[in-house]
Design a protein around this nucleic acid. Structure first.
Length: 262
DNA sequence: ATGGTCGTCATACGA
């Protein structure tokens, strides 16, 4: 038996309920983590997901911005969230499943356009958010845990279409990559996607602004699946469903998958 | 160097 995990920045859960349903039907993950739901929790179309077999849902939400949700076929034993940077925004939710594994679902701040915290408070917020993640996982080291989400950072050269051209572009600057590496080191998080796909370009996001996103293929790997070393991923189970970027009324992100042994 | 496209909520702002 294995557990199939999926993470997807959906950019409005209400507008895209039809393609969420399609993903659940086509791919049947055991757990689906959504980011940028952009909806108050009580306006998430939970009946649609329950009818599709995902009756166990925990979410955090606000009107119009941010928002994270965990949809599960398995019973959720416990749930929680942490308010990183004390802003009361909806960027983290966690659930412990009946098999004892904990899943953390994050939506890390995008950080604005200017990669300088003295000129751009959004960039400062992003770096501070990552530092708090590092400290939080250092203070309470997780076990049997999976961390997923839109981390809004593409850390490796092959996580972007042009390493050289993106070195000063928010999402691929050295200071962000360093901050993300510190989060990763805090709990010895393993990058499951790159364990399974160590070579070559891998992307999970393509801008809406490109004329032909697929032909231009100027993507970035912003969405991640990490796990603590005591979790056993199913060899080669990582995938990115690039096709979903071309579905009707798509998100600008594609779903990312990995499977774990029970 | 600039603008290109989305979603939400209100016609600006964040991504």
């Amino acid at each position: 038996m294995s557990i199939k995990v999926c993470t997807w920045n959906i950019n409005s859960v209400r507008l895209r309920a039809p393609i969420v349903e399609r993903l659940l039907r086509d791919e049947a993950p055991d757990v689906l983590c959504l980011q940028e739901t952009k909806s108050p929790v009580d306006k998430i179309p939970v009946e649609v997901f329950a009818d599709a077999g995902y009756a166990h849902i925990v979410a955090r939400g606000e009107k119009g911005y941010n928002g994270v949700a965990i949809l599960s076929r398995l019973q959720i034993e416990d749930a929680g969230s942490h308010d990183f940077c004390g802003k009361g925004d909806a960027r983290h939710v966690a659930a412990r499943l009946q098999n004892g594994m904990t899943i953390h679902n994050f939506y890390v701040p995008a950080g604005g356009d200017e990669p300088d915290r003295d000129k751009n408070v959004k960039f400062g917020h992003k770096l501070d958010f990552l530092s708090e993640m590092r400290d939080w996982f250092t203070a309470e080291p997780p076990t049997r845990a999976v961390l997923v989400g839109d981390l809004n950072i593409a850390p490796l050269e092959d996580d972007v279409w042009s390493h050289k051209q993106l070195l000063k572009v928010v999402s691929h600057t050295p200071i962000e990559v360093d901050h993300l590496a510190a989060v990763q080191a805090a709990a010895n998080w393993q990058d499951i996607t790159r364990q399974h796909m160590p070579e070559g370009k891998v992307y999970s996001w393509w801008s809406y602004r490109a004329k032909d996103w697929s032909a231009a293929d100027k993507g970035r790997r912003l969405d991640h699946i990490w796990a603590t070393p005591d979790m056993r991923a199913v060899d080669g189970s990582s995938r990115i469903l690039r096709d979903a970027r071309g579905w009707e009324k798509p998100s600008d992100h594609a779903p990312v998958f990995a499977e774990f042994h029970e």
